[in-house]
């Protein structure tokens, strides 16, 4: 197994060397105005991340070929892209930008990209947090109080399946700022599934645990805080990532229909000016943001799941 890992490790680096050689030495078929320096930096960053995973696996004595296989695929794709666009110009000139052009966007417009990332992420975090907290708190209360459950659960079942995106055009005109409209759409997207799940879970708590708590004289707020909330917590933690994906979907959708900031706006706006290098750069940034946030939520999930 060790030998296989090493063979792939070597293959990955042979490919990387070939890629760098092609980029730097082979004559361009297409006249491009940018340098290949930012592209090389990007490759170095990817290589760095790969090495991080490779050596972590080696240290933990994990015989995983995953990182090596992935990196081989990544280098092959880069090679194909580079050859097809920059070197042989087989692909349509405008529609498929060269890797050099795409990664040059990061050099030329990183302040813009960064501003848009901050704008998107802050909106996402705010909407996501409000949606989650409201969903859990109101869901637990409605699940716990039979009368509230009987009242709100049917209502929720009617409202929840309406895609929050259909409210978007109206919310944009109704609410004072575009950001508040986007936030409400994200909140709605995260809130309903969470609320319904919490109502079900809180109302199906084991009778034995409930008897135990009641016989200890646990009541009202202590019941919610010390018994029901901890009881529903594993479910909440499990849904963190799914909800994050929903929130991101809502965010980018909202940004694409009329925002003046954010990653979704950046992509749509670049698209209007046919700047496809920027479109692809924006998509890459989206991927990075969502991966980082997803890693954070998995960490939270692992850190706080204690009893199941």
């Amino acid at each position: 197994m060790k030998a296989i890992a090493n063979r792939q490790f070597v293959a990955a680096h042979v490919l990387l060397a070939a890629l760098v050689a092609v980029i730097s030495c082979m004559p361009n078929h297409k006249a491009i105005t940018v340098t290949y320096f930012p592209l090389l930096v990007a490759l170095a960053v990817i290589e760095g991340i790969y090495l991080l995973f490779f050596f972590r696996n080696a240290r933990e004595k994990k015989r995983s070929t995953g990182p090596s296989d992935i990196i081989v695929l990544v280098w092959v794709l880069f090679l194909v892209w580079e050859l097809a666009s920059t070197k042989f110009a087989i692909t349509p000139n405008v529609l498929v930008p060269t890797p050099e052009e795409v990664f040059d966007i990061f050099r030329t417009s990183y302040p813009t990209l960064w501003r848009n990332v901050v704008s998107s992420t802050s909106l996402l975090v705010v909407g996501y947090s409000i949606g989650m907290v409201l969903g859990v708190v109101l869901g637990v209360i409605c699940g716990w109080v039979p009368r509230l459950r009987a009242m709100f659960y049917p209502i929720a079942n009617v409202l929840a399946p309406i895609p929050p995106t259909v409210f978007a055009p109206y919310l944009v005109v109704l609410l004072p700022t575009f950001r508040s409209a986007s936030a409400v759409i994200i909140v709605l997207g995260v809130f309903w599934p969470q609320f319904l799940a919490m109502v079900l879970r809180a109302s199906s708590i084991d009778q034995g645990l409930l008897d135990n708590a009641r016989a200890l004289g646990v009541r009202s707020t202590t019941m919610i805080r010390r018994i029901i909330l901890p009881y529903v917590m594993p479910g909440v933690l499990q849904s963190l990532r799914v909800s994050l994906t929903t929130a991101f979907l809502m965010l980018t959708f909202a940004e694409m229909i009329g925002a003046t900031a954010g990653i979704g706006f950046y992509i749509t706006n670049s698209n209007i000016y046919a700047n496809y290098a920027a479109v692809i750069a924006g998509i890459i940034v989206c991927g990075i943001v969502v991966t980082v946030l997803s890693a954070v939520t998995s960490w939270i999930q692992r850190r706080f799941t204690t009893w199941r």
């Binding site: 645990l209 135990n212 708590a213």
Partner: peptide, 27 residues
């Protein structure tokens, strides 16, 4: 329910999200 009585059930005697010490302290 009143706390002049304490009890041990066959199942669900402890709260699974509290550590042993916390369970006793909660009582």
């Amino acid at each position: 329910p009143g706390l002049d009585r304490s009890f041990v059930f066959q199942d669900y005697s402890l709260f699974p999200w509290m550590k042993v010490q916390e369970n006793v302290e909660f009582g």
